[in-house]
């Protein structure tokens, strides 16, 4: 990782502002700084503030100061949901990587035209609402209209069955939702990949599988780690798919937060759980980043 001093621009290279001395060069940063303050820092501050309040039936966001909400974080409801969410996100990220990485690799080997078609295809699924997709999956997994009927027609199943609510249904739907993001993260790296490395491996007698595992994967370690991380972060806060396609055993921490905040009207506890979720996510980010390392920079 770059240190702070490395990251700070010594003289901005924006045309016309080049080498403007002192404070003036920092001027364009005021706008993004204000935006970050307004849309990130201040809401985050309120989240912390509410998590430190007492629950009060007369005031939704609570009143006073106490650590009461944080002392409730140890209960099984919270811990089970957090560990389930972490497990779900790691499973989803792993499977989606197994699907998306080879798919993206093959797409980058196609003609330019075909690549554009695939890109547009993936991007257009992003325009669909998450809710719409989830309810479509509900139909797809149902007994009467779902895909188990296709399996019956093919003679694989004896009779159609309902595939939701189930853990598999939740995983399948979330994978569908994250694949376009994984594709977009992996695509730039894979399409700019210097194929001469793979050619050299082949010339030296490496079989394609060996070249894949020993050349391609290590080269792409960083993009893979980034895509994996994105998926984990997106999945850990999943809400719609678990509540529509899952049973109570598949409820994520997002579902718990909404139940506590809305049904239980306990915003301080909901905020404290959200802070716990942030900490868990931050730890995952650090861990996965460490595995991803600096990667290959061409």
């Amino acid at each position: 990782m770059a240190t702070i001093s490395e990251m700070r621009p010594s003289g901005l290279n924006i045309r016309g502002l080049k080498n403007v001395p002192g404070g003036l060069s920092q001027l364009p940063l005021i706008w993004p700084a204000l935006m970050i303050l307004g849309f990130f820092a201040i809401p985050l501050f309120f989240l912390f503030r509410v998590s430190l309040a007492n629950r009060d039936p007369a005031v939704y966001q609570g009143t006073g100061f106490s650590l009461q909400a944080f002392t409730q974080l140890g209960q099984p409801m919270v811990l089970n949901a957090v560990s389930f969410s972490v497990m779900l996100s790691l499973i989803v990220a792993s499977i989606s990587m197994l699907v998306t990485f080879p798919a993206t690799y093959f797409i980058t080997r196609l003609s330019r035209r075909a690549q554009v078609a695939w890109l547009i295809g993936f991007l257009s699924t992003l325009a669909l609402s998450e809710v719409l997709i989830t309810f479509s999956w509900q139909i797809l997994l149902s007994k009467k209209a779902g895909m188990s009927n296709v399996l019956v027609m093919l003679g694989i199943l004896d009779e159609s069955m309902s595939l939701a609510p189930s853990f598999g249904g939740v995983v399948a739907c979330i994978i569908y939702l994250v694949i376009p993001f994984n594709f977009m993260t992996l695509y730039p790296g894979l399409s700019r990949l210097d194929t001469s490395y793979l050619e050299a491996a082949r010339t030296l007698g490496a079989r394609p599988t060996r070249a894949f595992f020993e050349i391609l994967l290590p080269l792409m370690r960083k993009p893979i780690a980034t895509a994996f991380l994105t998926t984990v972060i997106m999945t850990i806060g999943a809400y719609v798919a678990p509540i529509v396609l899952g049973g109570p055993a598949n409820w994520t921490i997002g579902v718990v937060i909404s139940e506590v905040a809305i049904t239980g009207q306990n915003l301080p506890l909901a905020s404290a759980i959200a802070i716990l979720l942030m900490l868990v996510t931050a730890m995952l980010v650090l861990g996965i980043n460490r595995i991803g390392g600096k990667g290959y920079v061409s």
């Binding site: 409801m77 239980g264 009207q265 506890l269």
Partner: peptide, 18 residues
């Protein structure tokens, strides 16, 4: 139910998901 809302919301999840 309003009086015990917090308890009910948390226990409902705990009992169903355990």
């Amino acid at each position: 139910k309003v009086k015990n809302a917090d308890f009910l919301a948390q226990e409902f999840i705990r009992i169903l998901s355990s």
